[in-house]
Nucleic acid binder design. Sequence first.
DNA 1: CCCGTCACG
DNA 2: ACGTACGTGACGGGC
Length: 390
Amino acid sequence: MPLIAVLIQMEENGVSVDTKLLAQMSKELDNTLQHLEVNICAISGGVFNLNSPKQLANILFNKLMLPVIKRTKTGPSTDSEVLEELAAQKFEIAEKLLEYRQLTKLKSTYIDVLPTLIHPKTGRIHTSFNQTITATGRLSSSNPNLQNIPARGDWGKRIRGAFVPAKKDWVLLAADYSQIELRILAHLSQDPVLLKAFQEGKDVHQSTADELGISRDAAKTVNFGVIYGISDFGLAKQLKIKRTEAAEYIKKYFEKHAGVKAFMDKTIAEAKEKGFVTTMLGRKRPLPDINSPNYSIKSFAERTAINTPVQGTAADMIKVAMITNNLQLTTNNLKAKMILQVHDELVFECPKDEVENLKQTVEKAMIDALPLSVPIKVDVGVGGSWAEAG
DNA sequence: CCCGTCACG
DNA sequence: ACGTACGTGACGGGC
């Protein structure tokens, strides 16, 4: 499978970033962060290194005597989940710390680093797409990782806004699979209710919400949970509800979706028998722990058995699309360049006058990649930056 | 070099 | 009674 040729091209193509925008963001954050730091130190009654979880824990839980929410191996945790809880309990410092953490993350990992990685010869940033790292068949990206560029919130959008076409009269085009993993679950399980929902073009999260009598947001969490190998404990934690209530939702979900339940039981049984699971295109993942006497280890393997065929088939699918699409670019003599893959999304840089052509080509390649029993939906966006195209 | 943390799908 | 959502990579702190 000649995906490697496509990956080499993408690595060589690289991406272009607007350094002026990034420099402006950096300056703005310097200001905001300085104020936050002064503010936080004032509340805590002393100067300390805000970037040290150890020093922070000491301030929060020894000096200020805030309640310990959860522990890590080494001491009380100060992660965002803990800070959210403390903020909900009206501890002002927690709110400030959340903002400080978020902004330092974006500054130190993306805003200040990306400009330094621009190759002097090409003027672009070149990642490595790794084909042999993940257990499911997904790609990974490193040096720098361009598969975890911020997407959420105002600052996420501003950072994606700095990913731009290099030339005048060129644009970025982003094509995303819509709910690909749930569609694959529908195909693999052949669950009649899920199949029907997709075939009728329903909003599946809303369908689940109606079935379970819960909000669309909660239903979305349930649907994700199903793909991850749901447990009442995990769902309860995620939805901040009682474990018994979560168990009821799961029971109800599996009553409505007996096909999904049967698929999961069958997948786990097969994994126990053969010692591995497979994706649609035959990628194997060994699961040596699936018969472990240790409940925790065995459960982990069982969740993996459920998740891998779904996540791995989605990876198979976009890889096929990348290969056929790249062939199409050549045959159609397009100047468009594939520059990024982010698991269920392909990003291209292309001349404005090729947009309509490319749209058709990409959409078709992605839809036709694998024959599924449900329609495949691809959202395509175009714009002057990744923020506008995505 | 490990840990805690957090960015993405 | 037990302990848990799936898959990654990078940063700063601190040993």
